[in-house]
Design a binder for these strands. Structure first.
Length: 417
DNA sequence: TCTGGGGTCCTAGGACCC
DNA sequence: TCTGGGGTCCTAGGACCC
C-alpha cells in the first residue's frame, strides 16, 4: 500500500502559518513577477478566484473584500517543506519526496486494518508538530493513492481517505473526473472526453489495447494502476537531474541586443551555478527568446538555438560565452518579454572527458568559479558577477507583496515577548 | 498596461553501425 | 524486373507533472 501526503493549499498555508490571524480569510499567492495566481485559500476559491488566473484579471474580484495577496516566497516554502518531509520520514521506511508539497510513503509495514488509524494519526500529528495542514490518501497503487487524496479533499472533510478494498474504490471511481486522474492532462482529457470517457471508472472499463493505442505506454501503466496493479515504485533516492535551466519573463519589453545580452549572461551564470551545485557538467546549451505569446496582435517570434559546448562544462565563463554566441545567431530586433538558457546532456563533473584538440584550462576557470561561489555565498548573490551581466538591476522580479523570510533570514525572525 | 518557472518521459524519424 | 535484417544513438516535438 502507498500513501500520498500533500499540503493543503501549500503556499497559502505556509504564509498563514506565520500570520495566524489570517485563518478564515481570502488569501492568494502569486507566481514569479506577481504574474498569476498559483495558490488559493478555500475562501479565495469560494469567491471564484481561478487557478493560474493572471493577477490583473483577479483584481476586480478581490476589490472591496478583505483579501490578502502575497508574492511567492520560495525560501519560506522550501523550509516548511523540509520540516514536513523530516517529520513524514518517521512514519515509513521508504519516503519519496515527490514535489515541494507532496510525498509518497510506502506503507507495506502495516496491516491493512491499521491503515485507517495511521492516516488519522499522520494528519493529526503533522498539524501538531509543524502547524502544516495536510491530506493523506492511501491505496494499492500510487495512482489510486493520488485519487484517494483528491477525493478526501473533495468529500470527506477530514482530510484522509483509505481505499483498501474494491468496494471502496468502486464507490468513488465513477465520481472522479477524468481530467483529475494523475497522468491525464488537457490534451488527453479532451481526447477522452470526446471518446465518451468522463471519469476514472469509465477509463478503467476501456479495453487494454484501446488505452495503449490512444494514450501510449504511460497511459497503459496508469490504466493498470487503476486496476490496482502497481507500475510505479516509490523512488527513495533522487537521481541526477537531466537538465538545468533558468528562464524568466521580463517586467517590460526589451528589443535592444545589449539588454538581451545582459539577461542571457545572467541566466547563463545562474545555470552554471546550479550545475556546480549538482556536481554536473553540461554538453549542450539551448538559448531562446520569446515575444509576448498572449498578444495575438503582436508580431510573434520564438527563436532558439542549441549549441554544443567545446567540452562538458559547469564554469561560468564557458557557459556565458557559449550562451552569448547563441544569442548572436538568433537575435533580430523585436519586442521580447522572455528569455532563457537551458543546459542538457548532463554528466557527473568528475567524469568530464577533456578535448584532445583544445588546450585544457579547465582547472584555472573552475578556480574562478569557486571563488565566485564563495564570495557570493558570503556576501549575497551577484556580489561578484560577469561584466556581461551589466550594472543595473533591471532583471529583478516584480515582488510587490513579498512576506518576510521568517525562518531563513536572521533579520526576519519573529520576535516574541 | 498587466499573463510563471522548472522539470520528466515517450515517440517518430533520421542518421548511423555491422 | 527483382536489392536484407537487426540494431544504436540523437533530436524535435508533444504529452505530462508540480
Amino acid at each position: 500500500m502507498f500513501a500520498l501526503v500533500d499540503i493543503n493549499n501549500c503556499y497559502v498555508s505556509c504564509q498563514r502559518l506565520f500570520r495566524p490571524e489570517l485563518e478564515g480569510k481570502i488569501i492568494v499567492v502569486l507566481s514569479n513577477n506577481d504574474g498569476c495566481v498559483i495558490s488559493r485559500s478555500e475562501e479565495a476559491k469560494a469567491i471564484g478566484v481561478k487557478m493560474a488566473a493572471p493577477e490583473f484579471m483577479t483584481r476586480e474580484l478581490l476589490k472591496d473584500k478583505e483579501a490578502y495577496v502575497f508574492s511567492s516566497n520560495y525560501p519560506l516554502y522550501a523550509d516548511m517543506s523540509a520540516r514536513l518531509m523530516n517529520q513524514l520520514a518517521v512514519y515509513t521506511p521508504v519516503l519519496e519526496v515527490y514535489s515541494i508539497d507532496e510525498a509518497f510513503l510506502q506503507m507495506s509495514h502495516l496491516k491493512v486494518s491499521e491503515l485507517q488509524g495511521e492516516a488519522e494519526k499522520i494528519v493529526r500529528e503533522i498539524k501538531e508538530k509543524t502547524g502544516i495542514p495536510i491530506t493523506v490518501g492511501i491505496a494499492k497503487t500510487k495512482t489510486l493513492a493520488k485519487l484517494a487524496n483528491r477525493m478526501a479533499k473533495k468529500k470527506t472533510g477530514n482530510h484522509h481517505l483509505v481505499l483498501d478494498n474494491d468496494e471502496k474504490i468502486n464507490e468513488v471511481i465513477y465520481d472522479f473526473p477524468i481530467e483529475d486522474v494523475w497522468g491525464i492532462g488537457r490534451q488527453y482529457g479532451k481526447k477522452l472526453y470526446d471518446a465518451g470517457v468522463r471519469n476514472a471508472g469509465q477509463l478503467r472499463e476501456k479495453p487494454e489495447i484501446w488505452v495503449q493505442q490512444n494514450l501510449t505506454i504511460q497511459g497503459l501503466r496508469l490504466w493498470k494502476e487503476l486496476w490496482g496493479q502497481p507500475c510505479f515504485a516509490v523512488k527513495e533516492f533522487m537521481e541526477r537531474r537531466k537538465g538545468v535551466s533558468c528562464t524568466r519573463s521580463f517586467k517590460t519589453y526589451f528589443s535592444d541586443k545589449t539588454s538581451l545580452s545582459e539577461a542571457i549572461a545572467l541566466y547563463a551564470a545562474t545555470v552554471a551555478y546550479k550545475l556546480r551545485k549538482d556536481k554536473s557538467a553540461a554538453l549542450n546549451l539551448t538559448i531562446f527568446l520569446r515575444t509576448n505569446k498572449h498578444r495575438q496582435d503582436h508580431d510573434q517570434n520564438y527563436p532558439s538555438v542549441t549549441l554544443r559546448l567545446p567540452s562538458p562544462s559547469n564554469n561560468t565563463i564557458d557557459i556565458t560565452k557559449t550562451a552569448l554566441l547563441g544569442l548572436d545567431t538568433i537575435y533580430t530586433k523585436r519586442n521580447y518579454v522572455k528569455a532563457g538558457v537551458i543546459a542538457t546532456g548532463l554528466i557527473p563533473e568528475n567524469e568530464i572527458q577533456s578535448n584532445l584538440f583544445e588546450p585544457s584550462d579547465a582547472f584555472k576557470k573552475n578556480t574562478v568559479s569557486s571563488v565566485i561561489d564563495f564570495v557570493n555565498a558570503r556576501y549575497g548573490r551577484g556580489m561578484i558577477r560577469m561584466a556581461a551581466e551589466g550594472y543595473e538591476k533591471k532583471w529583478s522580479m516584480k515582488q510587490e507583496f513579498l512576506s518576510p523570510c521568517y525562518t531563513t533570514r536572521w533579520s526576519d525572525i519573529l520576535k516574541s515577548r
